[in-house]
């Protein structure tokens, strides 16, 4: 449901055929990115405002590249260097975006629900680039895309998501997306970071033993330990050593339980924490594929939202 220039705050409104269509468009966009001049005029004259209230490398830069590749103008506003630092509210910043003629706002915000709030103002359509612990729809789509490119399918894949499920918007969005596309999903992590209720809520199995969770997996997605969201000090995280012993991913564990599995990580990697150094060199590690996929998928979404919006004029 991307029609009518609508906002995309999460993947709730997208069913499997919608997601499949976005992934197909992403394939076409990936081809554009391979050209000697990776640029098409599809969104010429459109202005996209990137509004980032939280640090980001991959997401922000891939949105910028996606805008450039489609010929759209992008304006980046990071909270630290704009009037947001002077106390401007999200509502007023959205008003400013509208007044400046932005056709779309890409929003990254530390508060869960910020994207819905901004979209509900009805000023400019919003594409959520991550809000608090709620959702990160473009990350989920690029995970699907990176996996589909390697395996050729999503249905029936055994996918295991490992780590800090509780604090992860990536886990929430990606889990929902994999389940929608017919994958069998297992969540794994320390009980303090993985409430049992998360299983039925996301349509997944919950397994606290890493070995059992990894066994036979086709795809292993490892989440980042989110120090910045553990605001209560320990934040439910056992000691790092304990975490590593129980849920840290190293090459030995992967090769023993699921040789040949694809390894995903949304980045940035805390080497030596959730992942040991050497696993990123395994042939199944597709972390760089994910980064490249990010540009193509974001192009597809920008195009679908902004072109869909033109129909009503």
């Amino acid at each position: 449901m991307l029609a009518g220039g609508g906002s995309v705050c999460d993947l709730d409104a997208l069913d499997a055929p919608d997601i499949g269509a976005v992934l197909d468009t992403s394939e076409s966009m990936a081809e554009v990115l391979c050209r000697p001049i990776p640029r098409v005029p599809a969104l010429r004259g459109r202005t996209v405002m990137l509004l980032f209230y939280e640090a980001s490398t991959r997401t922000r830069h891939s949105f910028e590249l996606a805008c450039k590749a489609l010929g759209a103008d992008s304006l980046t506003l990071s909270a630290a260097t704009s009037s947001v630092a002077k106390g401007e509210s999200l509502r007023d910043t959205m008003r400013t975006a509208a007044a400046m003629g932005a056709d779309l706002v890409v929003l990254r915000h530390p508060a869960s629900g910020a994207a819905h709030y901004a979209a509900a103002l009805g000023l400019v359509p919003v594409l959520n680039a991550g809000d608090g612990t709620h959702a990160h729809p473009t990350q989920a789509l690029l995970d699907l895309f990176a996996v589909r490119r390697r395996t050729g399918r999503l249905e029936g894949l055994r996918v295991c998501i490992v780590g800090d499920i509780l604090h992860s918007r990536v886990a929430r969005s990606s889990a929902a997306a994999f389940v929608k596309m017919g994958a069998a999903l297992t969540l794994c992590g320390p009980p303090t970071l993985l409430p049992r209720a998360a299983g039925p809520a996301l349509g997944a199995a919950v397994e606290y033993d890493l070995g059992a969770a990894l066994r036979g997996a086709d795809v292993v997605m490892v989440l980042r330990l989110q120090h910045e969201r553990h605001d209560d000090g320990a934040g439910g995280l056992p000691s790092l050593g304990e975490y590593r012993r129980g849920w840290g991913i190293d090459a030995g564990r992967l090769l023993r339980h699921c040789p040949g599995a694809l390894l995903l990580h949304p980045g940035p990697v805390n080497r030596g924490a959730e992942l040991s150094d050497e696993v990123l060199d395994l042939p199944g590690a597709v972390v760089q594929d994910q980064v490249a996929a990010g540009v193509a998928v974001r192009m597809a979404l920008l195009y679908r939202i902004l072109e869909g919006g033109r129909g009503a004029e």
Binding site: A21, T25, S28, M29, V40, L70, Y303, G308, E313
Partner: peptide, 18 residues
């Protein structure tokens, strides 16, 4: 991705491969 008449076509133009 090069059209100038998408408005008059489908709401969701299907992008094919080159």
């Amino acid at each position: 991705l090069y059209r100038d008449d998408l408005t008059t076509k489908h709401e969701h133009p299907q992008v094919g491969r080159t």
